[in-house]
Design a protein around this nucleic acid. Structure first.
Lengths: 236, 236
DNA sequence: GCGACGGTTCGGCCCGCGCCGAACGACCAC
DNA sequence: GTGGTCGTTCGGCGCGGGCCGAACCGTCGC
């Protein structure tokens, strides 16, 4: 797929709705309306503790942002959330939630194509292939990325052993460790397991070193087939 | 269930994250990071068109709000979104979405208990029962609430006919019309169908008029059973 | 060591906006 | 009509924050 990469124009709308909720007074009003009920401006003013005139301005702001709808009935104006979507959005902002994003490019320092695809980073694998491998292992729940540590699961041990990769725990460094890839700007796999993985792939001749640039790596046909068979990875 | 009703304290956190995204510059930065890649402050500064010092302050703000994470590598500091949850939240704010909220009380003008439960509003049913009926019909896709009009579906015609409610289209008013309930602050069902529904429920003696306050209505035992059988409504 | 460079902090400017009270307009009741 | 209520608009005040350039700190490379 073409990298979507969130066009900058989107940011305008984002800041618009965010700004509408940025003032604590407006946020409090929105929370009150989150109950799904409609209220007059005066009521909301009383409950958030501001003058009716102030509340009126805030409500106009929320209205402009498309978060509220108003229903006139005689001399009363009943404000409510615009629709269920904004209600769901508010509830979401009050908590937090799942689903990871997709990869994209952006400028980033230029790099020879072969190096960008795969290269060794000290003792482990980097480049697009390294990142893809890392992501796939996360998908397979072979490794779990925590807030400040990445761990190898029992299933992960099996998956890797299946590929001929075994690693004993060492005192000096962790089994698995995320390493920020400076060309991809995403994590690839380092640590003892990351190192053993690279050496194994080289031993099996799934990966071949470039003769002139030793850090650059090339994926052999058997390597391509092996990755597809063992991990279900389709390399680009 | 007890009415949750979004405590006001929640509004603080809401405004905090909203304020973090309220500045267009910060929103643009967040959109760039939405790609899932990590970037240095200088890069982001260049892309959003501000001085590095300004970008640094913005990034610190986003960091404080918990939306970003930073990874130091040598003299570089790579910023990325804190986790997949904030990425999903951002994507959500850039679009919109479903799921209706729940009912709650708040102050509202006081009202005799019986009137609050069910009463006639001109020629149709109002009060908690009227709102519950309206909501249930929406759930059953018997009526559909649009941005500026509510319509009766074919399935809705069948459901209502099953209860003995039939209504011919008139020139003067729509078949179904939402009417804002001033005790519940939510919509109940008016229009020709709403009127026919009330008269039918009274004819069948599912609803009984209070002798002293004629607008007040009481649900009979057969009415309670009938609503459960026909619409799956459990009245409180 | 020294310079170069990425990054943050500091001081200062100025626009924006949250807040109020007062004035104005619309609607209802009498 | 008059008065009362709900609501918005306007003028004005003061704080907050976005922006920059300059100074400062850490790391890398020589």
């Amino acid at each position: 797929m073409a990298t979507p990469g969130a066009h900058v124009g989107d940011a305008h709308r984002l800041s618009e709705v965010a700004a509408a909720l940025a003032a604590p007074t407006r946020a409090a009003m929105a929370c009150l309306l989150l109950a799904g009920t409609a209220h007059t401006g005066r009521e909301l003013a009383r409950h958030v503790g501001v003058a009716p005139s102030t509340a009126s301005e805030h409500l106009a702001h929320l209205l402009d942002a498309g978060l509220l709808a108003v229903e006139v009935q005689g001399r009363h104006r009943y404000y409510r959330l615009a629709d269920a979507e904004v209600a769901a959005l508010l509830e979401r902002m009050l908590t937090a939630l799942p689903e990871p994003p997709s990869v994209a490019e952006l400028p980033g320092p230029r790099l020879p194509a072969g190096m960008a695809f795969a290269r060794s980073c000290y003792d482990h694998l980097a480049g697009r292939l390294g990142v893809a491998l890392h992501d796939r292992l996360v998908e397979l729940d072979a490794i779990r990325v925590g807030p400040d540590a990445t761990t190898l699961t029992e299933g992960g041990v099996a998956v890797l052993a299946d590929m001929g990769v075994t690693a004993a725990r060492e005192r000096t460094r962790p089994l698995v460790r995320p390493c920020l890839d400076w060309s991809q700007r995403r994590h690839h796999l380092a640590g003892t397991v990351g190192a053993r993985l690279l050496t194994t792939l080289l031993e099996r001749r799934w990966l071949l070193r470039n003769t002139t640039r030793p850090r650059e790596l090339r994926l052999s046909r058997t390597g391509r087939d092996g990755l597809r068979a063992h991990l279900g990875i389709e390399v680009s």
